[in-house]
Design a protein around this nucleic acid. Sequence first.
DNA 1: TCTGGGGTCCTAGGACCC
DNA 2: TCTGGGGTCCTAGGACCC
Length: 418
Amino acid sequence: MRYFCLVDCNSFYCSCERVFHPETRNRPVIVLSNNDGCAIAFTKEAKAVGFGQMCEPFFQLKDRIKKYNVAVFSSNYTLYDSMSKRVMDILREFSPDMEIYSVDEAFLQFEGFDHYDFMEYGQKIRKDILVKTGIPVGVGISITKVLSKIANKMAKKNKGVWVMINQQDIDDVLKTFPVKDIWGIGSRSAAKLNMLGIKTAYEFKLYKDEGLIQKLLTKTGRQVQEELRGVSCLALEEAEDKKNTGTSRSFGVNVYDKKQLQEALAHFSTHAALKLRRQNSVCYSMQAFIYTNPFQEVPQYYGQGRATFSSGTSDTLKIITAAHQILDEIYRPGFAYKKAGVLLNHIVPKGQNQLDLFTPDPSDNEQLNQVMDLINRKYGAHTIKSAACGIHNDWKTIADYKTQHYTTSWKDLLKVKI
DNA sequence: TCTGGGGTCCTAGGACCC
DNA sequence: TCTGGGGTCCTAGGACCC
């Protein structure tokens, strides 16, 4: 018999901050998105006093933050990535079959574990991670991925672990579980199911007209229905290279100047190219875009363009150059730009790169990129970069409440008084 | 004043080919 | 009035996820 287990960190970003700020342990905590734009993570204490709506603008929350003495942090992705790695390393010890689903979630598959007491095993996972990292997690165990997701939601309200393996236990939960909370059923699909009179996961499971489900919710929705029935359709997935990648940011201020957009796009290109080299891939095409602020009553403009490379590349300089060429085409003076980004498409492993017959030098500045990566790894990000990235970066994202890189930078190491 | 970022999968429809 | 059939590839857009 095969079982699926979903382990999910509670309010992950907030929990990471709390590990290094124990004084916030009993206070509500929220973490802001890039640019301190809006709130994206909340502890249960914050939810208890009315926070928790995803992406509520920060400026609209300020009064309530004061009133409830909420601890606020800018997002610190370097810290979260590093804490995530610690959690995943521990989880790996509990099963050889594991899929890292996101920064704060992983599926474990248990095969040949039939004699295990899963309740006890789940508690052990929880305790181990809490003791070794300080991060609280929830554990849900069932017989398909979708069902283990549901078990995980139940765990949140019930001591952190929930096991549902026999049919009766599963149905008891499904009867009370709203269809809109099922993994893979978003608001659109939920509305369609409601129109068919389907409100609970149990009703969805029993709904007979599979053809109609296929038509309304496509193949994805049908698979969810099967998984609810206990038929496993979604297997554990291997970590695969990204098929698209990109970097984009909102600016801290309105940007009018083309020069500044060039700098910003150079930064984003640098970052995206690094992601590409880290997974040892190259891309054949890219896009760049610039936006005005859709929330403001100002003239709107959305410019985007495309470039293709004659052979695959992950060269920062080549990608910056292409981004600048796109900018030349799409830039319109006079607009107040608020956001920009680059996307790298048609990505393949470097080993499969098709070289171009007519490009005599396919070297792609490879050694230069390697040396730059090495220096930046050793002495910290942005130690060395293309001059196109500029120096002052007036467009920079705002992060007024950002904590240190406690786990990834020697100079930010936490000081402990004894 | 201030409104995130990074992904995946699926489908329909157009372009193109023989 | 009548206007093939079958196939592939690509892209845009929708929906969903964290």
